[in-house]
């Protein structure tokens, strides 16, 4: 038996909560503040919020929204989207987020990860890595919401961010995102084996047993999901949900080796 963190990951686009499939076809879910309130009432382990439109619109993080969200979140909260400076990080942490998530900035300016780790501790520096198989079937890190391929193999980039001082990696499989096909265990294992910092697996969760598998087989330290926690089922009717403690215990924690 072992507790692992089971994290709803929420995407914000133009101020609203959305959910994607393969990083495309974003479906409007609702108001993010309201969703966080519901997740708080359900006593979720932790919550990750990523504003996927900030970088695209060349916009700074929306501090007033972060503050409002943090005011409703009496649990660990991580926030990503549009973060490019140490000062923004300082403000976001001051407003009550526990960690910041870097994606584009980690690719463009890895020094920012180091600076965050030095000033605020590595536990507050999270890097999210978006991965897709290219046409040759090789795993590659992608950027710009999965639109642009980089030359990095995921393990190589994961090691780089670990060396830079990141405390955690959120590893997203673009191919599995929103598909309910289960986690990409091979990808998760490759990266988990390559680094010593915790890897949070995301992309494809369809049932609680997928979480057990990605920890026991894929080597992940924590798990996250979007669709599973914002939709009632694969028919994608919106319903914010999260398992009760007893269910997490029986269906996940007791099966973790």
């Amino acid at each position: 038996m072992r507790r692992i963190r089971v994290i709803p990951i929420l995407l914000i686009q133009k101020g609203g909560l959305v959910k994607s499939i393969n990083f495309k076809n974003h479906n409007y879910i609702g108001d993010p503040i309201n969703a966080v309130k519901i997740f708080n009432d359900k006593e979720v382990d932790e919550i990750a919020i990523i504003d996927i439109s900030a970088t695209k619109e060349n916009r700074e993080p929306n501090i007033s929204q972060i503050s409002e969200i943090a005011g409703e979140a009496f649990m660990p909260l991580s926030y990503g989207g549009g973060i490019t400076t140490l000062n923004q990080v300082k403000t976001i942490l001051y407003e009550g987020a526990e960690k910041v998530i870097l994606n584009t900035s980690a690719l463009d300016n890895l020094r920012l990860v180091t600076q965050i780790a030095e000033q605020f501790g590595s536990q507050s520096a999270v890097v999210s890595i978006d991965v897709k198989k290219d046409w040759l079937g090789k795993y590659r890190v992608y950027r710009n919401n999965g639109k642009k391929k980089t030359s990095f193999a995921p393990e190589t980039f994961a090691k780089k961010v670990e060396e830079a001082g990141a405390g955690e990696i959120i590893l997203m499989s673009i191919d599995r995102d929103g598909t309910y096909k289960g986690f990409d265990l091979e990808l998760m294992k490759n990266v988990s084996d390559a680094v010593n910092i915790p890897v949070v697996a995301v992309g494809g969760a369809s049932q609680l047993n997928d979480f057990v598998e990605v920890v026991n087989v894929g080597g992940a330290s924590a798990v996250a999901a979007g669709s599973l926690f914002v939709y009632a089922s694969e028919q994608r009717g919106v319903m914010i949900n999260y398992p009760k403690q007893a269910r997490l215990m029986n269906a996940i924690f007791e099966k973790i080796i």
């Binding site: 072992r2 507790r3 536990q123 405390g167 955690e168 010593n196 915790p198 330290s221 924590a222």
Partner: peptide
Amino acid sequence: QKLKIPHMGWSN
């Protein structure tokens, strides 16, 4: 058991 440090997460 095989665990990474830091200890990050919930404990009873």
